Computed example of a mutant assay.
Amino acid sequence: MAGAAPTTAFGQAVIGPPGSGKTTYCLGMSEFLRALGRRVAVVNLDPANEGLPYECAVDVSELVGLGDVMDALRLGPNGGLLYCMEYLEANLDWLRAKLEPLRGHYFLFDCPGQVELCTHHGALRMDSHYCTDPAKFISVLCTSLATMLHVELPHVNLLSKMDLIEHYGKLAFNLDYYTEVLDLSYLLDHLASDPFFRHYHQLNEKLVQLIEDYSLVSFIPLNIQDKESIQRVLQAVDKANGYCFGVQEQRSLEAMMSAAMGADFHFSSYPCSLATAKKGDMGPEMATSTLVGD
């Protein structure tokens, strides 16, 4: 007797430094998705995340808590968090068992804010104020590039807290320059005017060359309070993880091409169900939303 057809699960792994707004993003995005009719499950993978503002379907603190690890092993916050992630990695059966009853849901994984987990560590969004400082922006570009190469998932980089950007100071260039990561030599010219960074001109020049050689990093500005802003992000994520091309969605070729080419399309036509794989379990289709932050 043939079993039920396995489903392909879609979702987002939300990563980024502490304070970049990952938890706020998960709250805002989950509310937006539910308004569209999608069944959403938010999974908290941060054992240090307390007082969650959203309804949590799975909470890693049920498996391991950062405070308990720090007390028992006499570790600091960074070491304790690394231990927690390694413990989760060693107990993935626990996570699979928790996710199994949630088949058919769209997943949002709220990940820890330790950047090393995404850039260096095998166990595993940026704040717009970095645009006001050329040196910090180059650093952000390097971090984003390293994360994209290390995680190896479809990737969407976000510049969060766009509603606060005017409070951070005047930008040297228009916003498109930062989101599209245009000719970075102009940033080098700005750095050359600073006596401190003038001594590191060759280093910054090589970093900029590396970023431009890969030509992978770009950003989408996000104001989590603005529905149109969230919709633009969701368009990009749905293209990245393939949700908009699901076989059960029966979207017209015109609508699919519109999504693929980046033209506007209407989310009201999205169905609630997830795509079903034709042959075998295709596994989760995940897009990584990286928030650039403090």
Rank of each mutant, 00 (worst) to 15 (best):
L175Y: 03
I211V: 15
G65F: 00
T8I: 13
A275M: 05
E100N: 06
V156H: 09
Y186K: 10
Y186N: 07
A57S: 15
A260Y: 09
N157A: 14
D226H: 10
Q235E: 15
G122V: 05
C111V: 04
N223D: 15
D281G: 10
L158D: 00
E166C: 07
P271R: 12
M282Y: 03
H199L: 12
S258W: 02
S252A: 12
G262Y: 00
K278D: 13
G67S: 15
T288C: 15
A255N: 07
H190K: 14
A192Y: 03
A192I: 01
L75R: 13
A72L: 08
H120W: 09
K98L: 10
M286F: 07
R38G: 01
L63H: 14
N204M: 12
D68Q: 11
P154E: 09
K227Y: 05
S193G: 05
I15C: 15
H155E: 10
S215N: 15
T288M: 14
V156D: 07
D176T: 13
L88Q: 09
A9C: 11
H120T: 10
M29D: 04
A192M: 06
T290A: 13
E62K: 09
P6N: 04
Y177P: 06
D176V: 05
Y186M: 10
P77V: 11
V69M: 05
A13Q: 12
L117Q: 07
H121L: 14
N78E: 13
N49V: 02
G37H: 08
Y83L: 04
D68I: 02
S128L: 01
G293P: 06
Q235K: 15
L188M: 10
A5H: 08
V43Q: 04
A123Y: 07
A57L: 09
H266I: 02
M286I: 15
A263Q: 13
S160G: 13
G246N: 05
T7Y: 05
G65E: 12
H201S: 15
C244W: 02
L210P: 01
V58G: 00
I138Y: 08
H201D: 15
R251G: 07
T7E: 14
D213K: 04
G16V: 08
H190A: 12
Q202F: 06
A5D: 10
T24F: 11
N44G: 09
D127Q: 05
P271I: 07
Q250I: 03
M261Y: 07
E89L: 11
L102H: 13
A146S: 15
S20G: 13
S61N: 06
S139E: 11
A236E: 12
Q231V: 04
L184W: 03
A13T: 11
